[in-house]
Simulated scan of single mutants.
Amino acid sequence: MNRASTHRDRADGGTLKRLGWLILIWVCSVAALGVFALGMRIVMSLVGMTR
């Protein structure tokens, strides 16, 4: 086993880990935006701003 293949294997694992974190953060931010929008709709309906 040479150093180049070891470094490449470690880099590929890191890349997948970073991609996983990126997807997780994106999903959480979309979910948070959805919760915020739902909260805004509830507040708006409570104060009479319905269509």
Rank of each mutant, 00 (worst) to 15 (best):
D12N: 14
G14R: 02
G34E: 08
L46T: 12
R18T: 05
L19M: 09
A37T: 04
V30E: 15
T6L: 10
L16S: 12
V30S: 11
R41W: 06
I25C: 09
T15C: 12
C28N: 12
L46E: 11
A37Q: 08
L16K: 09
A37S: 08
L46K: 05
F36V: 07
R10I: 11
G34R: 00
V35L: 01
R8M: 08
I23H: 11
K17Q: 15
V30M: 06
S29D: 15
L16I: 08
V30L: 11
S45E: 06
L24E: 11
A31C: 05
V35T: 03
L19Y: 05
G13C: 04
S45F: 03
V35K: 02
I25N: 08
H7N: 14
S29L: 06
S29W: 07
R18D: 07
C28I: 02
M1F: 06
R10M: 14
W21F: 12
L24F: 10
V47N: 07
L16F: 07
D12G: 15
S5L: 11
F36R: 11
M49K: 01
R41G: 12
S29V: 03
V47C: 06
L38A: 14
G14L: 02
T15M: 13
G39M: 00
R10D: 14
V35H: 02
S5C: 12
L24A: 11
R51H: 12
S29M: 04
I23Y: 04
M40P: 03
C28Y: 04
M40F: 02
S5Y: 04
W21M: 05
L38S: 10
R18C: 05
